[in-house]
């Protein structure tokens, strides 16, 4: 199948190095300490953060740092065919683990010993790149909750189809069986914290694809920063200072 037309356009009309439209909104869940909705094209994810709060299960309490927990779920209605997903299947267990470890690396957990931070992410619409969208949403929600972080982690994916590196794959491109590289970076330190890849790719090509995904992450980081600044401005004006 042709994923990039001779004119250099992808199936959804994007250029190879073009991202889908991103939209973010802070404060979507009223009861949560921090929450956000993040959209990348048709992928839509909601995240809620509770904490830092008292540890629910005392045996899990850590005396030198905060306990971070994360739960990733996919709504039954998020994909094309409605299916009932068993809770805790292998895929979502793995993604929960990966999101938790990614967020744990940037949260300053040593500042909040003997407390617990819960991150819940739910996919509302899945159209490829849910892993990245979840990490971006979780970052926003953590920032909204006012949890101290060393940097804002952002994530983006890239692939390689028809010998062209493609940024931000959608579902059709993702299920084409080509390589899919998901990168999560700490933009200020310019370091890679999350890196996942499947399928086959020569090392040199991989370097280019990873570079492209990193550029995507940086673009998302700029946008997230803007959203947070706008949100802070609004809070400030509401307070009337």
């Amino acid at each position: 199948m042709e994923y990039v037309s001779p004119e250099g356009l992808r199936l959804d009309g994007r250029r190879p190095m073009e991202m889908r439209q991103i939209r973010a909104e802070v404060g979507a869940v009223s009861k949560a300490d921090g929450s956000a909705v993040f959209e990348m094209g048709n992928t839509k994810v909601i995240a809620a953060v509770y904490g830092p709060r008292e540890v629910q299960n005392r045996s899990q309490q850590l005396n030198d740092q905060a306990l971070v927990r994360c739960e990733y779920t996919m709504s039954n209605f998020s994909t094309g065919d409605r299916m009932r997903r068993p809770k805790g299947d292998r895929r979502s267990t793995e993604i929960s683990l990966v999101i938790r470890q990614t967020m744990e690396a940037c949260i300053l957990t040593h500042l909040m010993p003997r407390s617990q931070i819960d991150i819940f992410v739910q996919v509302l619409q899945a159209d490829g790149g849910t892993r990245s969208a979840c990490i971006n949403a979780a970052t926003l929600a953590l920032a909204d909750a006012g949890i101290p972080m060393s940097d804002l982690v952002t994530s983006c994916s890239a692939g390689y189809l028809n010998s062209t590196p493609l940024l931000d794959l959608n579902y059709v491109e993702d299920s084409a069986g080509g390589p899919d590289v998901t990168v999560g970076i700490l933009p200020k330190l310019d370091k890679v914290t999350l890196l996942q890849m499947d399928a086959k790719l020569p090392i040199d090509t991989f370097e280019n694809v990873m570079q492209l995904a990193t550029e995507g992450c940086k673009a998302i980081a700029n946008y997230i920063r803007e959203v947070l600044q706008e949100n802070t401005k609004q809070l400030e004006s509401r307070r009337g200072t």
């Binding site: 683990l97 690396a105 890679v192 914290t193 996942q196 890849m197 790719l201 020569p202």
Partner: peptide
């Protein structure tokens, strides 16, 4: 053959891109 078949770095401390390569 010099192909990368899978990579997994699930969070944790950040490393420079050059280190990954």
């Amino acid at each position: 053959n010099g192909d990368v078949c899978a990579i997994q770095k699930g969070g944790g401390i950040g490393v420079l891109q050059s280190v990954v390569l």
